[in-house]
Amino acid sequence: MMRQAKLLRAFWLHDFREAQSYPLVHFNRLAGLAMLFFLLHGLSKLVGDGMGAGGLGVLPFLACGFAVMDLMWTSLGAFTSKLRRHQTTGMLEACLMTGHSLPALMTAMPSFDLSVSVMRSTGIVVLASLFMTPAPNPVAWFYAALFGAGGMLLFLAVGLISASLLLRYKAGDPLNRAVHLSAVVTGGVFVPRAQLPAEVGAIGAWVPIAPVVDGVRLALAGGGWAELAPVALRLVILFAIASTVALFTVRAAVRTVLKEGSLAHY
């Protein structure tokens, strides 16, 4: 555990230093956040209140969807993008020579990107909370954070599956694309699932983003544990499935690339 923590820290510092070397990086990030929020605000005015946003208001509804989507986008893509970059530059081989296993390196590589995404998502939700009436209480924030953290674990498990497919088949990240598409179309990120056709809504409840976005919105809207428990159960089930599959696919992929000698190829 200590070893993995040190590895996470090393990659975090490495990428942080790289980010710091670009003079306007923090300004760009803040500007991006402000622009997104401005866009969401405009959209919410355009849509008005007829959307059925689950007691949250349209702006917080959309902002929560965007925040969770951002978290998912980064978590899913973090492993594959870093892995691909380090494979093609030879950095992966150089890192392996320090005595770490490939799965350990894979999981540590995106630590900085993930931390930035967590901050950005939190920023979006905090800004959105200013438009909520009544404002969320500390318990609501706590539950929302729990769902956010659980969701991130689920997304990371799916990201690991995607990365192991990339290792094995060198074929981009079709799984990530499928997860994103399903999230946008059926997951209730931008449109409440209740407004989708019943069959689509039923399928959408089981795409990875759905329990996370549902949980965060419900918690911030003041939902109690009785309402949150079924959503949490869905999240736990999806996580159990994804993490088990990730364990097998990562092991199989590592075994195969070491046998085939294609570790550093993309």
């Binding site: 490495h14 230093r17 790289e18 070397s21 670009y22 530059t89 030879g90 950095m91 081989e93 150089a94 392996l96 020579m97 320090t98 005595g99 770490h100 296993s101 490939l102 350990a104």
Partner: peptide
């Protein structure tokens, strides 16, 4: 041991992109 023995090996290849250009 998951590759721990690799620490006993120093590897120099022709690949010079394995460093971060910005650091």
């Amino acid at each position: 041991g998951g590759g721990r023995q690799r620490r006993r090996i120093g590897w120099v290849s022709r690949e010079d992109r394995s460093f971060n250009l910005r650091l």
